[in-house]
Nucleic acid binder design. Structure first.
Length: 246
DNA sequence: AACCGGAGCAACCGCTGCGCA
DNA sequence: ATGCGCAGCGGTTGCTCCGGT
């Protein structure tokens, strides 16, 4: 007789996570912490198995995740670690704070492997042949080598006075044609979100302002179609009431 | 405009190792 | 010592997007 499944899969949802599910999981973890993945979905009101919740949190929702393309330095490090450790992705990932094993594994399989193969086939130049991607990125972000390095700045509203800063945050995000990529409210009410829809952000901020007299706000924004990332970051840094924190 | 193929990546599956009774 | 249940890990799958024809 085989091993019992990790959970009763009948009636459980599979496939891509919705924003609502993300929100439920995140809120639950932030309020209760991580104790038992198996029972978590039930208490969080999710029709998912614990394994799926764990994966979603680790690979996507965790607030300390570093998003964006891998730098040349990171790639070199991955190659070096891979020659020493082999396919032990979690071990490799432990050398890169904010990166997940899944992310590194995918990057290895889709980019690095190919790059190394091309290098092997092109020993004279010792240069990667596929420069297409680099060129494309350079065209999109002429002032930035790595879009996310520049964009993932953090902004903080100190001693926010309820709705004032809440509106400020939302208006600024909307006027700058941005999507919220990460929001972190601290103090007595805590919530985080990644790729949160504007409507949901409003609700979260509303809840926050109801449950505490003052709160601080930390977040990062990612511009949509901004021609100059640096310019955009500069404009955010000048935002009254928001302190740019390194 | 429609189709196709490749790239990228999120999510799943099944195995392993560990802690505990 | 053994078996069970769990979290974690690595391989794989399948969906989405995008560029080329």
């Amino acid at each position: 007789m085989g091993r019992q499944p990790c959970c009763d899969k009948i009636g459980l949802k599979r496939g891509p996570w919705t924003i609502e599910e993300d929100h439920k999981l995140m809120t639950f973890i932030l309020n209760n912490g991580i104790q038992c993945w198996r029972t978590m979905p039930k208490f969080a009101g999710l029709l998912r198995c614990g394994k799926s919740c764990r994966l979603r949190w680790i690979n996507y929702l965790r607030p300390d995740l570093k998003r964006g393309a891998f730098s040349e330095i990171e790639e070199d490090q991955i190659i070096e670690l891979h020659t020493r450790l082999g396919n032990r992705w979690s071990k490799i990932a432990s050398h890169f704070p904010g990166r997940t094993d899944n992310e590194i594994k995918n990057h290895w399989n889709t980019k690095i492997k190919k790059k190394l193969r091309l290098l092997e086939n092109n020993p004279i130049t010792q240069q990667p042949l596929d420069k297409k991607q680099d060129k494309k990125e350079l065209e999109m972000y002429p002032n930035s080598q790595n879009e996310h390095e520049k964009v993932n700045g953090k902004f903080q509203v100190l001693e926010g006075s309820k709705g004032d800063h809440r509106n400020e945050v939302v208006e600024k995000a909307m006027s700058s044609q941005s999507e919220i990529s990460s929001v972190h409210l601290i103090n007595s009410y805590e919530i985080m979100s990644r790729n949160m829809e504007m409507e949901m952000l409003m609700t979260s901020l509303e809840n926050a302002s109801q449950t505490c007299s003052s709160f601080s706000f930390q977040g990062s924004f990612r511009p949509i179609g901004s021609s100059s990332v640096e310019q955009w970051v500069q404009s955010m840094m000048c935002w009254d009431g928001i302190n740019y924190i390194d």
